[in-house]
């Protein structure tokens, strides 16, 4: 453990963190075979990072869908294209909003708890205790959470999108009186499974990996003090939000 605390405010330190985080990614990937022996731990973590985030994801999904429905119906009506509301909601969700908003929520809900948990395990010598019991904490603690992030995020995004579509439907059809058949048939004509839905799923998995990587890295390398854990938790949210948005741009630019 280094006694000097990382200060991300300095550019050099920030770069060093990025580098260390990248190396850590390789360590995590290297530990995957070993962590498969603790597959139950990964399952447990899918529960913690995934299922425990469901409520917030579902609530936010519903509201995001309703807001999108309202706004787009209003804007598209001006061009006589209110019928396209459902389509535009679906496309915006599947391609961008679903993965990005879910990733940001995921960073706040699951990422922080991963960082805080691992940071506290470091501070209370639990990671050292595992080392002493000949259990590699990288394979038992870090990698399962990383994998759980990759597995849970796409599922959460699908749930988020489904609820958002529902919310948009309620607003456009039930409240604003758009024809039900028009809402769906326009959507089904213009939304493609592969380029829209499945691409969104890949994107979500990548976001899940990035958020989980940063969360685990911050927790794993935090100075073992309560102050250190607090800083690390904040850094998880800040760094993973930036990383998600940057990666989103890169993936959108190169994959579509």
């Amino acid at each position: 453990m280094s006694a000097t605390r990382p200060r991300p405010s300095r550019i050099g330190d920030a770069l060093a963190q990025v580098g260390a985080c990248g190396l850590f990614l390789f360590q995590l990937i290297g530990a995957i075979p070993k962590s498969l022996r603790h597959i139950k731990e990964t399952i447990r973590q899918v529960w913690f990072v995934g299922a425990m985030s469901l409520v917030i994801i579902m609530t936010c999904g519903l509201f995001v869908g309703m807001v999108l429905g309202l706004q787009l119906y209003d804007v598209l009506s001006r061009f006589g294209s209110a019928a396209m509301s459902g389509t535009v909601v679906a496309l915006a969700l599947y391609r961008e909003l679903g993965p990005v908003v879910t990733a940001l929520l995921f960073a706040g809900r699951a990422g922080t708890s991963i960082t805080a948990e691992i940071g506290l395990m470091r501070a209370t010598d639990q990671l050292a205790a595992m080392e002493m019991m000949a259990v590699d904490p990288l394979a038992y603690v870090a990698t399962p959470r990383f994998l759980a992030g990759i597995v849970a995020m796409p599922l959460l995004v699908c749930v988020f999108n489904a609820l958002a579509i529902l919310g948009a439907h309620v607003v456009c059809v039930t409240w604003l009186g758009l024809d039900n058949g028009t809402f769906w048939s326009n959507m089904t004509t213009n939304v493609d499974v592969w380029t829209d839905v499945v691409n969104g799923v890949w994107k979500s998995a990548a976001f899940g990996a990035v958020v989980a990587l940063i969360a685990v890295f911050q927790g794993y390398t935090t100075p073992p003090t309560s102050e250190g854990v607090a800083y690390a938790t904040t850094r998880t949210v800040v760094f993973s939000s930036i990383a998600v948005l940057a990666l989103d741009f890169v993936m959108t630019a190169f994959l579509t």
């Binding site: 395990m121 639990q126 205790a129």
Partner: peptide
Amino acid sequence: IGYLFQNSALLT
């Protein structure tokens, strides 16, 4: 090797 930590270090 068995190791008893000064601060117990139980898995919480």
